[in-house]
Computed example of a mutant assay.
Amino acid sequence: MIAVDVQGRAGNFASSVAFESAGDVTAVFGPSGCGKTTLIRMICGLHTPERGQIRVGDTLLYDQRAGLNVPAHKRRLGVVFQEPRLFPHLGVTANLRYGQWAGGRSSPLSFDDVVDLLGLGALLQRRTAFLSGGERQRVAIGRALLAGPRLLVMDEPLASLDAARKAEILPYLVALKAEIGIPMLYVSHSLSEIEQLATDMVVMTDGRVVTSGALDEVLNRLDVPGFSEGPEAGSRVKGRLIAHDEDTATGRIAFEGQQVVVPLPRPRSLGPVLLHIQAKDVIIALEPPRGLSIRNQLSGKIAALHQPAGPYVEVLVQVGAQQVRARITQLAARDLQLDVGQSVYVLIKSVALEPALG
């Protein structure tokens, strides 16, 4: 559990943030300049709020009324920044051992546990100057874990990496979520990262929280200014990969009693998967269409409609126990005469989908 209710300033920037989360991985999302880094600095003890309270688990880290402000080095937080900030004069092993020393060897994870979890075995004898960006970030995460943190704080850890290095490190972050048993606070402006990692989400803008809660609930909100109408807005849905056709390089995913076809150029294990479906890639039809190249046609009912300022209408369609978002024009919504409770078909191009580990 992390509970934050603070107000403060960083220069001319005012911040007033309040949220609670008991999730395994709480994502803090928002555009650049919205106050994410200021919030992290307050939680980590690097910037003092003017008033309020910060609690992690059963431990108060800051309470203005009680005159309590635990120093940064005593807060037992493992912090990974956008830049790895490794010690350049030390090798990989020494950087990792520093984490153990700094944490008083209090980590429930052993040195070998962390090395295995993050795939660092082949790097232990290397100097940090000869590591790739993704390798350096993995070492930084390992060092933070070996300090025995009560909370792992990750501030845009993939922002400085190119697409290939992000793809390299994301599976390790997914493994951390599943195996370490340490709550994480993950700061990012990338929805695709958040959807693969987070269980809960906090959305910020202009130094304040505009919504927070369970990840899927927040993603399906249609009325959050600056978020719901964003270019990455969409749905995260859960399915199960049940077949792979090597001849057509496609996979079939079971989803709420129906099936979805996705590109799958390389074989992978059958089992749970996540799909991010961008709202702009979804078409709404009143009848099952024929003669189209679109492979995915899901039946459902409209659960909500929202028309923000501008030319679009946001549509939330209930498909079984899950929901899929669509973004269509006002003109299309008017011509189709859409209404809540109406039965519709959701059409999704296969090429718009890429399954991630579930």
Rank of each mutant, 00 (worst) to 15 (best):
E256W: 01
G91A: 07
A178T: 02
Q259A: 05
L264M: 07
L191I: 13
A332R: 01
K349E: 08
I284S: 00
N95P: 15
L77F: 07
S350C: 05
P171A: 06
R136V: 02
L161A: 11
A321N: 12
S212T: 09
V260Y: 13
S16H: 14
V324R: 00
V4T: 05
K177N: 11
R126K: 11
A102W: 10
L331N: 12
R334C: 03
R143N: 12
Q7L: 06
G103I: 06
G310S: 10
A102R: 14
A214L: 11
V115M: 08
L241T: 11
L275K: 01
L191R: 14
R334W: 07
K301P: 00
E135A: 04
L77G: 06
N220E: 15
H306R: 08
V114W: 03
V262M: 10
L305Y: 04
A198D: 12
I242L: 13
A303V: 00
L336Q: 10
A198G: 13
Q7A: 11
E135R: 01
V282C: 01
S235F: 11
H306Y: 15
L158I: 08
T26A: 09
A164Y: 11
F130K: 00
R266P: 00
G91T: 05
G8S: 14
P265T: 00
L286Y: 02
A333M: 08
R150W: 04
V115S: 07
V261T: 14
L222I: 09
E314H: 12
A233T: 14
M204F: 05
A167Q: 15
G52T: 13
K280P: 01
T250V: 06
D162N: 06
D339T: 07
A249C: 08
R65L: 15
I43Q: 09
Y312A: 07
L170P: 12
I242H: 05
E83M: 01
G291R: 09
E179L: 03
T205M: 13
L131W: 00
D206W: 01
